[in-house]
């Protein structure tokens, strides 16, 4: 979705009239989403919805969820952290509780895009926009997050891992409202590299698994199908399992990089992804005591 159709330039003036709905409860929002299904767009922070409307993707109904009670905010449990889907990036980066419980996530979010975007954009919008360069799915995947959805057709809750969500999202999973993101609360180290954004962005997490090994996940964002994710482990002796070079190479093969109008070519990516992965792992193993 990076290439604009220039036949008619993108503009806010292309946004035709629509019917605005401003639900205040999750149930109400769900009702509206079920009722209008294909004819409605959810509007959280509105960044992507608005830019898409400017390019001519229009629907007769817009459901603004910014006022829905319970859809934003951060709750810290004993073992779990819950972030409301409509929580703004900014509110994540400055939340004192989260900064205590999972400071690296705050730092990660603080480096996302720019301040205007973080003040307005939501975590749910970043995930659900399904844009190739957006980074939240990757970081949430490596932190073993679960996405909590309300299936508006069946009125049931669905919990999906990021990997599961990435698998089904292309297959029209029906009207789903993302209500929150749940993360395990535990010590974990996080490292990332954004030097080549928007073409490539890498993130990795590592923790002690209690058996003397360090386990974690690593993800690379850049391909149009969403982040590519792999499990990683380091033995106490520092041996990689599986071999990081192999993981990276497998990713490279799967990255449909030629879809990217921006940035370097596939050949380059295949050279640097393994290097950047290894550097991340080195940083992480140093960071984990």
């Amino acid at each position: 979705m990076l290439i604009d159709d220039h036949t008619i330039a993108a503009s806010r003036r292309r946004i035709a009239g629509f019917r605005l709905h401003r639900p205040v409860t999750i149930d109400e929002a769900c009702d509206l989403l079920a009722r209008f299904s294909d004819g409605a767009m959810l509007h959280a922070g509105g960044i992507d919805v608005t830019n898409r409307m400017k390019r001519g993707f229009l629907q007769p109904h817009v459901i603004a969820v910014q006022q829905v009670a319970g859809l934003s905010g951060i709750r810290l449990g004993e073992t779990e952290i819950e972030i409301g889907a409509a929580t703004r990036h900014w509110d994540i980066e400055i939340d004192p509780g989260l900064r205590h419980a999972l400071p690296t996530l705050c730092d990660y979010v603080a480096g996302l895009g720019n301040i205007r975007i973080r003040m307005q954009g939501t975590i749910g919008g970043n995930i659900m926009a399904a844009e190739p360069g957006y980074e939240m799915p990757a970081v949430l995947a490596v932190l073993d997050a679960e996405l909590v959805f309300r299936d508006c057709a069946t009125r049931t809750e669905r919990r999906l891992t990021v990997d599961q969500w990435l698998e089904i999202r292309g297959a029209n999973p029906g009207p789903l409202l993302l209500t929150s993101i749940r993360l395990p609360r535990r010590p974990i180290a996080l490292a990332w590299n954004r030097q080549l954004r928007p073409a490539l962005s890498l993130v990795a997490a590592l923790r002690h698994d209690g058996t003397g090994q360090m386990r974690g996940r690593m993800a690379v964002t850049g391909g149009s199908s969403g982040p590519l994710i792999a499990d990683i482990a380091l033995t106490a002796a520092g041996r990689e399992d599986p071999d990081l070079g192999l993981v990276a190479r497998a990713w490279v093969d799967r990255l449909p990089l030629l879809q990217l109008p921006l940035g370097p070519d596939a050949g380059y990516c295949s050279e640097v992804i393994p290097i950047l992965c290894r550097r991340l792992l080195q940083t992480l193993s140093k960071r984990l005591p």
């Binding site: 604009d4 830019n51 109008p261």
Partner: peptide, 17 residues
């Protein structure tokens, strides 16, 4: 502003770095 298949790829403020 690069081109592919005769189309400009980065002729927009969001894509032109």
């Amino acid at each position: 502003i690069s081109y592919r298949n005769g189309q400009p790829l980065t002729a927009t403020p969001l894509t032109y770095r």
